[in-house]
């Protein structure tokens, strides 16, 4: 869109390359009167969805788990493009990679994480080709113990 651009009655104009925030346009008609409209350009949602891990065995504080997730169609600049990903332990201080991988929006992935600890925080991070970084925290804590308790049949003597 350029200043001075003419629009006919009912003509649709597509405006792209907009950054996040409020975008306003003022248009003048043939009488010289002006009309203004503002719209908010938001950031799209995180494309990481359905992040899920298997759980540590009840009573253990470390072990191997399986982490799965899928990526969503949230933006035309991202969908269909490749990404690089990694899973790292945020609480270690070193942010050392546990797993690295590649993928293509939209897809589903499953990764094995060896020797994770129940108290650590693990982060799934993917970086799209256009430079966007998306992260999601993995929660693999003690829900398994609660679930195990709930699912254990109670025997009355």
């Amino acid at each position: 869109m350029t200043i001075g651009q003419e629009l006919q009655n009912g003509e649709t104009l597509i405006i792209d390359n907009l950054p996040e925030g409020n975008f306003s346009v003022t248009i003048k008609d043939n009488y010289g009167c002006t009309f203004e409209k503002t719209i908010y350009i938001p950031r799209v949602n995180n494309p990481i969805a359905n992040l899920c891990t298997t759980l540590l065995a009840c009573g253990t504080t470390s072990g191997d788990i399986e982490l799965s997730f899928r990526t969503l169609d949230v933006h035309s600049a991202v969908t269909g493009t490749n990404y690089t990903g990694r899973i790292y332990q945020a609480s270690s201080g070193s942010n050392e990679d546990l797993v690295t991988f590649t993928g293509t929006f939209t897809d589903t992935q499953i990764h094995q994480l060896a020797n994770v600890t129940s108290t650590a925080i693990y982060v799934l991070e993917i970086i799209s080709e256009n430079g966007c970084t998306y992260t999601e925290l993995s929660d693999h804590g003690c829900y398994n113990c609660l679930l195990k308790l709930l699912m254990t049949p109670i025997r009355f003597l």
Binding site: M1, T2, I3, G4, Q5, E6, L7, Q8, N9, I15, L18, P19, E20, G21, N22, F23, S24, V25, T26, I27, K28, D29, N30, Y31, T34, I41
Partner: peptide
């Protein structure tokens, strides 16, 4: 009323 003319645009 047409043609209309874009006279201003404010970007974030």
């Amino acid at each position: 009323q047409a043609p209309f003319e874009v006279i201003n645009a404010t970007y974030p």
